[in-house]
Design a protein around this nucleic acid. Structure first.
Length: 833
RNA sequence: GCCCCUGUGGCGGAAUUGGUAGACGCGCUCGACUCAAAAUCGAGUUCCGCAAGGAGUGCCCGUUCGACUCGGGCCAGGGGCACCA
């Protein structure tokens, strides 16, 4: 056996051996129990980064561990390959987005293979492959036919120079990120998926996801945003208004109904639109409301604007007249698009009322005695007792809410309702590099789905990015087709699907990928749900919610018998690194900072942040893997930091891992002579088996690593014995999921049959998990004064006697009798003096 | 503004149901081996103190024989949502 482990030869040798043996191919009809381990598939941006390495190292340990425990493991890999960076590259470097993407995939696949992940590459897929997106189009058509897809007008950020739609994050200070042009809000007809149909299901389903982080469940719950409240109607001036006799508003605070000072509707409300049609003043006001971008920052600072357009009558008092406004802060797509204003108890209404000189009436007070206390310089949204509220006076808020809803329902002017924050999912993107939406627009037949036998609708290759706008729309022939329904001339939809659609079902396609349909229901249901899904917390809401929705939608239309796609979810932390800047404030790569320091230049060392190209604090995994080997990198990624927290990359850390790899190799390759039993080492070994197993199951890789260090330390200290030989052999198996190349090399060098990847996981002997001697803490008044050893299970009386007789205790007691003695068997004795 | 999480040595972090705080790693110190260096091995490493001893898990209070762990109130850092009525 060589004296040093050489990863440069060993890594390649075993990667090839696994490939040739098909070790990690998942069989659909194995008799073993299944385990589906999945990490979020990467976007092929160019090169693997440390975040990928960490993510996939975690999944890999679990996959290999499950294999050794007798599971048939599905651990696939693919590419989330559509998206804007490819179009940006096309514009900047004059390469076709497809060419750029496929070449990145080739590079990154080689990099992943170099790390020796236990992946089933036979199931590899790329979302930009027609074999994938064609099946996605088929699913889209099915959802369309089931009524879960519809089209409506929706506002987008429009860049008038690039003639393109911008995502919110591409709008910087109200201008397009690339062109610098002032962004306009424009209405386009776009496709939506009815995720709101599933709002209740998606919310309730969260309750059963007990293997998800609470944080993610809470984030989804807030995102779905269920609010109980009441819809009710204000009568408005009946005259000449084209039949609109009332305004329906939504509120979560029906109790404050007697605090109303005004009614306000959104600029997009039908009533506002109707007024605008006959009044230039109203039309101009609505236009003014639409100025400015849609970004959160702009909305935040926007001033409250209102235009009075008429009067409404209070439902509980026909003589009570309230002004009706069109107001810019009312959202059309929440509730009913109209509100009633209670300035005393809602901050927005307070600001609006202050500006327009409306009444500010208190209707909730801390106590009935404070009914006349004026509202100060802010609204009071809190709890309390109803005052100045006629039949509600003296009731608490919850009782008053119920009373108002009951009366409204009895009298027919309103009813209890639920409002959701969740909006339908707009999936239209005015982009080239995405899945074409399989719809044809025909003048006589309307929007017609492309028949399945005409799928896939393939992206044209001959496109150019020289002229602004969507290349699909400008293509000379691609969009011109005959209507599939009537045969007349028609045009294709030129929008493509949001890339979140691509990632909403890839885990199903991994499980089953027939050529002629999206998946086989039975095979997919065999593998699903994903037993453990691992990825970044940045996908806590959108991706995970969309995937949950998509799966439920497929279930509703009878395509798959699965509701929740991901049984276990784990969100891992980021890989971070310190940032550096030179005297001019330019960001420096870590190696540049080092070089500059060596030259004596001034370098400012900044915060430790997520590795990012813009801050230049990245470390490319490839040269590190070449220098230290895959196992050292994997080991480092699993050590020290709890996986859900951030991991700071450090040179000394990887050095330490490298040293441990070599130390492990020395332990494994040393002469294993010796006979006889070493009871203490046997115990340590079996405790380690139990601990490593539990920690891998819990994804606490840092603790499993510490367990292995402890065992290695114990083995090195132990004298040669039969126990020691067994411990070395078992250590190898325990370490195998983390350092698989070294493990295979040592396994082969020891002359073992087959591969360690197929070897069974060791089992802990319960008899060896318990100690026969325990250390008992001796405390006086809860302070540690000494420790003694005692036989496990020693009787309380014996422990108490030992403690009282202890010289340290005697000294502190100074002759006095203990007031009380608490004995916790096998743990401690506490003497209360 | 609303909701949530985190806070332990020089650093990353351990610590079943409340029961010996600081496992394990990094770094550092001293020593061994070596002509020397690397590598390796051994000892030490929470703080104050020569020691005996004392203090100590962000801060303050409480519950308890006993609190990193439970309760209340602060402080700091991080995250999510946000004219959502």
């Amino acid at each position: 056996m060589a004296s040093r482990f050489n990863p440069l030869t060993a890594d390649a040798r075993w990667q090839q051996a696994w490939d040739e043996a098909g070790t990690f191919h998942a069989s659909n009809d194995s008799s073993r129990p299944k385990a589906y381990i999945l990490e979020m598939f990467p976007y092929p941006s160019g090169r693997i980064h440390m975040g990928h390495v960490r993510n996939y190292a975690m999944g890999d340990v679990l996959a290999r561990y499950r294999r050794m425990n007798g599971f048939e493991v599905l651990h696939p890999m693919g590419w989330d390959a559509f998206g804007m960076p490819a179009e940006n590259a096309a514009m900047e470097r004059k390469v076709h987005p497809g060419e750029w993407t496929w070449s990145n995939i080739a590079t990154m696949k080689a990099q992943l293979k170099r790390l020796g992940f236990a992946l089933d590459w036979s199931r590899e897929l790329a979302t930009c492959d027609p074999a994938y997106y064609g099946q996605e189009q088929a699913l889209f058509v099915d959802l369309f036919k089931a009524g879960l897809v519809y089209r409506k007008e929706s506002e987008v950020n429009w860049d008038p120079v690039d003639m393109t739609v911008l995502a919110n994050e591409q709008v910087i200070d109200g201008r397009g990120w690339r062109s610098g042009a002032l962004v306009e809000r424009r209405k386009l007809s776009q496709w939506f998926l009815k995720i709101t149909d599933f709002a209740e299901d998606l919310l309730e389903g969260l309750g059963a996801l007990d293997q998800w982080p609470d944080k993610v469940r809470l984030m989804q719950e807030n995102w779905i945003g269920k609010s109980r409240g009441m819809n009710f109607r204000f009568a408005i001036e009946p005259a000449q208004r084209g039949g609109i006799k009332s305004i329906e508003v939504f509120t979560t605070r029906p109790d404050t109904i007697f605090g109303a000072s005004f009614v306000a509707v959104s600029p997009d409300h039908p009533l506002a639109q109707e007024y605008a049609a006959s009044s230039p003043e109203v039309a101009a006001f609505i236009a003014k409301c639409k100025q400015g971008g849609t970004t959160a920052a702009e909305l935040e600072t926007a001033e409250k604007l209102g235009l009075e357009i008429g009067e409404a009558y209070h439902p509980l008092d026909p003589d009570w007249e309230l002004p009706v406004f069109i107001a810019n802060f009312v959202l059309m797509d929440y509730g009913t698009g109209a509100v009633f204003g209670v300035p005393g108890h809602d901050q927005r209404d307070f600001e609006f009322a202050t500006k327009y000189g409306l009444d500010i009436q208190r209707v909730v007070a801390p106590s009935a005695a404070e009914a006349d206390k004026p509202i100060g310089d802010a609204a009071e949204p809190g709890d309390g007792i109803l005052v100045n509220s006629r039949f509600l006076d003296g009731k608490d808020v919850e009782t008053a809410k119920a009373a108002v809803i009951a009366r409204a329902e009895a009298e027919g002017w309103g009813q209890g309702t639920t409002a959701w924050r969740l909006r339908d999912w707009g999936v239209s993107r005015q982009r080239y590099w995405g899945t074409p939406i399989p719809i044809v627009h025909c003048e006589s037949c309307g929007a017609v789905p492309v028949p399945k036998d005409q799928l896939p609708v393939v992206l044209p290759e001959d496109i150019d990015f020289e002229t602004p706008g969507n290349p699909l729309d400008r293509h000379p022939s691609w969009k011109h087709v005959d209507c599939p329904s009537c045969g007349k001339k028609a045009v294709r939809e030129t929008d493509t699907l949001d890339t979140f659609v691509d990632s909403s079902w890839y885990f199903i396609r991994f499980a089953s990928q027939p050529a002629d349909r999206p998946f086989d229901a039975e095979v997919a249901a065999h593998w699903l749900p994903v037993d453990q899904y691992i990825g970044g917390v940045e996908h806590a809401i959108l991706h995970l919610l969309y995937a949950r929705f998509w799966t439920r939608a497929l279930q509703r239309i009878g395509m798959i018998d699965v509701a929740e796609p991901f049984q276990g979810l784990f969100t891992q932390g980021m890989v971070t690194h310190r940032t550096y800047q030179d005297a001019a404030g330019k960001w420096l790569l870590p190696e540049e900072a080092e070089a500059a320091l060596a030259k004596g230049d001034k370098v400012t060392s900044g915060r430790v942040e997520k590795m990012s190209k813009s801050k230049r604090n990245t470390v490319d995994p490839e040269p590190i893997v070449e220098q230290y080997g895959a196992d050292a990198v994997r080991w480092f990624m699993l050590s020290d930091s709890p996986p859900e927290r951030d991991l700071e990359w450090s040179e000394s850390g990887i050095e330490g891992s490298w040293r441990f790899i070599q130390r492990l190799w020395r332990i494994l390759s040393a002469d294993q002579a010796g006979d006889g039993e070493d009871k203490a080492l046997d115990r340590k070994l079996h405790q380690t088996i139990a601990a490593v197993s539990a920690n891998i199951e819990a994804l606490a890789f840092n603790k499993a690593v510490a367990n292995l260090y402890e065992l290695a330390n114990a083995i090195e200290k132990a004298q040669p014995s039969g126990s020691r030989r067994a411990a070395v052999e078992t250590l190898l198996r325990l370490a195998a999921p983390m350092v698989p190349h070294l493990a295979e090399e040592a396994w082969a060098a020891a002359g073992r049959e087959g591969m360690i990847a197929d070897a069974p996981w060791p089992e802990a002997d319960p008899a060896l998990l318990v100690e026969d001697e325990v250390t008992i803490a001796i405390q006086v008044n809860g302070k540690l004064r000494d420790t003694v050893t005692a036989a496990k299970g020693a009787p309380k009386e014996q422990l108490e006697a030992m403690a009282v007789a202890n010289p340290n205790v005697q000294r502190i007691l100074a002759g006095a009798a203990p007031k009380k003695v608490i004995v916790v068997p096998d743990r401690l004795v506490n003497i209360v003096a």
